[in-house]
């Protein structure tokens, strides 16, 4: 069944002064039901992309959507509200409803355990509570397309995990499309089915997670923590690009995988096997682009 295109981006250029901070040539289509994880290092253009889609920065090129702007919800990296009143009143004004008369809103407040925060002023909320406050209002918009820009940045591990768990469960039962900017790949493992990888303002890869994995990492990958012993043991084998603390071994065939795992078992070494690891996709997609730009071959 053909899915409706919610957003199409093509030939997009965003400049800050003389610097080109984002340049997207080939079309990027976000379709109904897509859960797109937008990744890239700091300054890659992730937030700029969201800001240009929302019309908050000037751009050249084409961003098309059939959705009116009020049907696109967004949780920005930083969300500020007035400090003159309790959060409850801000919520009621923005959502144009009374909490006591709105079942759906009450459900969301309970779901995100925000009841005790309703009487507090925004500045008195903790980092996690602040994020939950905006998330509740963003979810109440019930928009077909929602952007989350680094929702969990600055939160401690436990708060982050709890928040993502709640978001995953909430969206599992819904068919809304999401675009999630995050530096935490484990969050995207749970929330995203597609990846848009940006580097220095350019798209280096866009597609389904599994397809990108196959394209850049192969059938499966075995990932080990780096050590001199492992480095020596696997010297004769092909390796994928990986962060310095890891060794990534591609398994193009089942036989190859068996050979590697046998060797690991013999030496009693811990390892992880993956067919969707986002860190591997990102590292290898980036490496592949760098090689292409340098005129090298993967």
């Amino acid at each position: 069944m053909e899915r409706e295109v919610l957003l199409s981006i093509e030939n997009l250029t965003v400049r800050y002064g003389k610097d080109v901070v984002l340049q997207i040539g080939s079309p990027v289509l976000i379709e109904e039901g897509d859960r797109v994880g937008i990744i890239g290092s700091n300054g890659a253009g992730k937030s700029t992309l969201i800001r240009s889609i929302l019309g908050l920065v000037n751009y050249q090129g084409s961003i098309r959507t059939a959705l009116p702007m009020d049907r696109i919800a967004v949780h920005m990296q930083s969300n500020e509200y007035t400090d003159s009143m309790a959060t409850k009143h801000i919520m009621e004004a923005i959502l144009q409803t009374k909490i006591s008369r709105n079942q759906r809103l009450q459900e969301l407040i309970r779901y995100f355990e925000f009841e005790d925060c309703l009487r507090k002023r925004y500045s008195k909320l903790s980092g996690g509570q602040k994020q939950r406050f905006t998330i509740i209002m963003v979810m109440m918009q019930d928009a077909p397309l929602t952007f989350y820009d680094e929702v969990t940045s600055g939160l401690d591990f436990e708060t982050r995990q709890k928040l993502v768990e709640k978001m995953v469960t909430w969206y599992q039962q819904r068919d809304a499309s999401l675009c999630i900017v995050s530096h935490y790949y484990e969050e995207l493992e749970q929330l995203a089915n597609k990846l848009l990888i940006l580097d220095k303002g350019r798209v280096i890869a866009y597609g389904k997670k599994e397809e990108l994995f196959r394209r850049y990492c192969g059938r499966a990958v075995i990932i080990l923590k780096h050590s001199q012993e492992k480095e020596a043991l696997f010297r004769p084998y092909d390796k994928l690009a990986s962060p310095a603390h890891l060794i990534a071994l591609p398994c193009e065939t089942e036989e190859k995988e068996r050979e590697l795992t046998d060797l690991l078992l013999t030496h009693n070494m811990d390892y992880t096997r993956s067919t969707t690891d986002i860190e591997m996709i990102y590292t290898n997609a980036k490496k592949c682009t760098e090689n292409r730009l340098d005129g090298g071959e993967r």
Partner: peptide
Amino acid sequence: MNKMISKYMVLYELRNVTGNP
């Protein structure tokens, strides 16, 4: 939000005004 003036927004703005000592 389509309504130019609403009860919730006027109340919100009034709280903003009175919130400044």
